[in-house]
Simulated scan of single mutants.
Amino acid sequence: MKIVIGCDQGALELKNYIKEVLAEFTDITVEDVGTYTADSVDYPDIAEKICAKITSGEAERGIALCGTGIGISIACNKVDGIRAALCHNVFTARMSRQHNDANVLAMGGRDIGFGPAAEMVRVWVAEEFLGGRHKRRVDKIMAIADK
C-alpha cells in the first residue's frame, strides 16, 4: 500500500514521527508532499497535493496533518472521492476505516501526542472496511457530491 502524507508547519514534528511509525510496515511505501520546514504554509495547498495522489490512483490512502487537523480535514473533504476523517483516538481511527472507509486520516499536531498518534496510525493502516450496511451509507455520502 502507498500512503501519501503531508502537513503544514503546525504538524511538522508529528509528520516526521509518523513517517518513522509507517517505516515499521514492510508493505507500505510513503510519499511526503511537504511541508519540510517550520516556515508558514497554507494547509489547503497540502490537502490538494495529498488528495491528488489518491484520486489519481498513485496512492491508496493519505495522512493529513495541521495544527488541529480541522482545517486540513475540511479541505480534503472538498475533493471528490475523498473521505477524510479527523480522529482523536484509536477508537475513532478504527471506526473511520471499518464504518466509513476513510481514505485520509487527519490529525492535529498541536493536540495529539506522539504515542497516541502512533497507535492511531497503526490501527488505521491495519483496519479494513467492513462493507455491508456501511457500504450503503458510504455510497450515500459520496452521492451527496453529485447533487
Rank of each mutant, 00 (worst) to 15 (best):
L65W: 05
N16K: 12
G6E: 06
W124S: 09
L130K: 15
G113L: 12
L65K: 06
K147Q: 10
I28P: 05
V30E: 05
S40T: 14
I144F: 15
Q9P: 00
A106C: 15
G109M: 09
C87M: 05
N100D: 14
I5S: 13
D139T: 11
A102G: 12
F129S: 09
E13V: 07
V90P: 00
R136M: 13
T55W: 10
Y43P: 02
R97A: 01
H99T: 13
Y17K: 06
M120R: 04
C87F: 03
I18S: 03
A85V: 04
T37D: 15
A145C: 01
K147R: 11
V123Q: 05
G108Y: 11
L12D: 01
D146M: 09
Y17C: 00
S96E: 09
R122C: 08
L86Y: 03
A23W: 04
C76T: 07
Q98F: 01
G71E: 01
R137C: 12
A93I: 01
D42G: 08
G115C: 00
G69N: 13
A145F: 07
I70Q: 11
N77W: 08
C66M: 07
V104M: 15
P44G: 12
S96M: 09
D42S: 09
E58V: 10
A59K: 11
L130F: 10
V104C: 15
C76A: 15
S56F: 10
G67I: 04
C7D: 04
M95W: 02
Q9C: 00
T26W: 00
R122F: 07
I50Y: 04
R110N: 06
L86S: 04
S40N: 14
D101G: 08
A64C: 13
V4E: 03
A118D: 04
I144G: 01
V33R: 09
V90F: 06
G113H: 11
L14P: 00
S96R: 06
K49S: 05
Q98H: 07
A52P: 00
A126N: 13
A117I: 03
C87T: 08
H99D: 13
I54M: 11
R61N: 12
Y17L: 03
N100Y: 10
N16I: 01
I28C: 06
E48L: 15
L86D: 02
F114A: 11
N16R: 10
D42K: 09
G132S: 14
G115E: 14
D42E: 12
A118M: 07
F25W: 03
H99W: 12
G81D: 04
N77F: 09
E20T: 11
N77S: 11
F25Q: 02
I18Y: 04
L14W: 01
I74W: 05
C7W: 02
A38E: 15
K19E: 08
I82W: 05
K49P: 02
A23Y: 03
A64D: 09
E20H: 06
E60C: 05
D27A: 09
V90G: 02
V121R: 07
R136N: 14
A93Y: 00
R133T: 09
A106T: 10
